[in-house]
Structure formats: C-alpha cells, structure tokens
C-alpha cells in the first residue's frame, strides 16, 4: 500500500479524534515503519490493518465504519493532491466510470508498484449504475467511502448498496448505485 494512503489515514485520525489519539495509536501499534510514511514509499498493507484495529481498541468505533469514513475523507484529499486526474468528469457517475480505465492508470504512472482494484461499471439506466469491485486486498468499505466521497464532492445524492460475491472474503463485490429522483428542480 502506498505511503500516500497511510499519510492520509493518519491525517484523518488526527482530524477526527485529535493528535493525541494519533500518537497513542502509533505507540500502541508498534509498527515497523514507526508510523513515518512518505507518500512515494510503499508499505505493508498489514500496517494499515493494525492501525485500523488499534483505532477500534482506542475509540470503540467499529473497524468497518472507520474504513468507510476514511474512504469518504480520502477522496477530497486525493482530489486536492492530484486535481488533474478528476478534471474530465462532470458528475459522480462519469468519474466513477473512469476510475478503472483512467484514474487508476494515472496512479500507476506515478506509482508503478501500486496495488489497485479493478472496477467494472455498468450503467443500467441514467440513474442506476452497477459496479463490480475485484481486489485481492478485499477493501469494499474503503471503496464505499471513496464512492461516497466522490458523490459528496459533486453534491449529488446517490444511494449505495453492496453485496459480497466471494463468500465473506470481500474480494468480489457488487455495488449498486441509485441516484435519487430530482426534487423540485434541485438535483
């Protein structure tokens, strides 16, 4: 997992629970990197998982919602860091459709060793999209958070549902995105 994700995670923890918790978390987790991450570096995905479970221990928040919230926060961070990557999209569906064949490809150019999922989008109707997520890392909550972040970014209202297709491993997951009906001229 790239350092950029770790840095974003620690920033997110600091902002959500305070710097004190961040320091405590790093101390508790006893990470081999010592919690010193540079965005260009690559670190063991296990460090992220122990940070997450460490945070559950410290705060009592369920790990799934930790991850989901992190994803939600991660999206604007990424957009801020790499604005050119998202400029082409006018709405959430457009952007989501381009993750696999555009955004993550740009990521690979920067970080050839990045471990990325594959997304297969399918537009069922102008307001409904199915999105298949495949990743050996099995992080659908992170994806859900990122999707939510993306939707929030465009100021849209989209309902997200997902179901695991891999019998609990979460490596193959189907997302169903349903755009809410326009109400009184507002989108």
């Amino acid at each position: 997992m790239k350092g950029v994700i770790f840095r974003a995670f620690l920033d997110h923890v600091g902002q959500t629970y305070g710097e004190n918790i961040t320091e405590q978390l790093i101390l508790n987790c006893n990470l081999s990197s010592g919690g010193a991450y540079t965005s260009v570096g690559t670190y063991d995905t296990g460090e992220l998982l122990s940070l997450i479970s460490g945070l559950t221990d410290l705060t009592g928040t369920e790990s799934t919602s930790i991850v989901k919230n992190f994803g939600k926060a991660l999206f604007p961070i990424l957009v801020e860091k790499y604005p050119s990557v998202v400029q082409h999209a006018n709405n959430a569906f457009e952007l989501i459709s381009s993750v696999d064949n555009h955004i993550h490809i740009e990521v690979l150019k920067l970080y050839p060793d990045a471990g990325l999922p594959t997304f297969s989008p399918e537009l069922k109707s102008p307001t409904c999209m199915w999105l298949k997520y495949d990743s050996e890392r099995g992080l659908p909550e992170l994806a859900e958070g990122l999707l939510q972040g993306c939707i929030d970014y465009f100021g849209e209202e989209v309902e997200i549902e997902w179901q695991d297709l891999s019998g609990g491993a979460n490596t193959h997951v189907l997302f169903k995105l349903q755009k809410k009906e326009q109400v009184n001229g507002y989108s």
Binding site: G35, A36, T38, S39, G41
Partner: peptide, 9 residues
C-alpha cells in the same frame, strides 16, 4: 516521524 519520512523519501 516527518524527518524520518523525508530522509526515506
């Protein structure tokens, strides 16, 4: 931590 990360970078 930042120092260490910078060196590493």
């Amino acid at each position: 931590r930042e120092e260490r990360a910078r060196l590493e970078a």
